Computed example of a mutant assay.
Amino acid sequence: MKKTLIALAAVAATGAAFAQSSVTIYGKVDVSLEKANGSSAAVGDPHGSRLGFRGTEDLGGGLQAKFQLEHRFRPDTGTDAGFTPASADGKTPAVATFWNGMSTVGLAGSFGEIRLGRYYSANFLGANNKPDPFGGDGQGALRGVGMQTTTLAGFIRTANIIHYSGSFSGVNVAVSTGLKEGAAKAQNSLAVGYANGPLDVGVGTEKGVAGTLTNAYAIYDLGVAKLAFGLGNAKTAAGAKTKGLLLGATIPAGPGKVLVGFARAKNDTTTTNQKLGLGYYYPLSKRTAVEFTYGRDSKAVVKGTNKKVGGLDLTLHHNF
Rank of each mutant, 00 (worst) to 15 (best):
D200K: 00
D200I: 00
G202L: 07
V203S: 06
G204L: 02
T205G: 15
T205M: 14
T205N: 15
E206A: 09
E206R: 06
E206G: 13
E206N: 10
G208S: 11
V209Q: 15
V209R: 09
V209Y: 11
A210F: 11
A210E: 14
A210S: 13
G211H: 00
G211T: 00
G211W: 01
T212D: 15
L213K: 05
L213V: 12
L213R: 07
T214M: 14
T214V: 14
T214L: 12
T214G: 10
N215V: 01
N215G: 02
A216F: 05
Y217W: 05
A218E: 12
I219D: 09
I219E: 13
Y220T: 14
Y220V: 13
Y220Q: 13
D221V: 07
L222V: 10
L222G: 12
L222P: 11
L222C: 14
G223Q: 14
G223S: 12
G223F: 09
V224G: 06
A225H: 00
K226H: 07
L227M: 09
L227T: 09
F229Q: 04
G230K: 00
G230L: 01
L231S: 06
L231G: 06
G232D: 12
G232E: 10
G232T: 12
G232H: 09
G232K: 10
N233C: 09
N233E: 09
N233Q: 13
N233R: 13
A234Y: 09
A234H: 09
K235F: 06
K235W: 06
K235H: 07
K235G: 11
T236F: 08
T236A: 07
T236G: 10
A237V: 12
A238E: 02
G239P: 06
G239S: 08
G239K: 02
G239W: 00
A240I: 03
K241L: 03
T242Y: 01
K243H: 05
G244P: 03
G244H: 04
L245Q: 04
L245W: 07
L247T: 04
L247K: 02
L247C: 06
G248A: 01
A249C: 02
A249D: 01
T250K: 03
I251R: 01
I251V: 05
A253T: 14
A253V: 10
A253Q: 11
G254R: 11
G254D: 06
G254Q: 11
G254I: 06
P255V: 11
G256V: 04
L259S: 13
L259N: 08
L259P: 06
V260G: 03
V260P: 02
V260S: 04
G261R: 02
G261V: 01
G261H: 04
F262S: 01
A263P: 00
A263V: 02
A263K: 02
K266V: 12
D268P: 00
D268W: 00
T269L: 05
T269G: 05
T270Q: 13
T270V: 14
T270G: 12
N273V: 15
N273L: 09
Q274L: 08
K275Q: 12
K275G: 03
G277R: 03
G277L: 04
L278P: 04
L278A: 08
Y280L: 06
Y280N: 06
Y281P: 04
P283F: 10
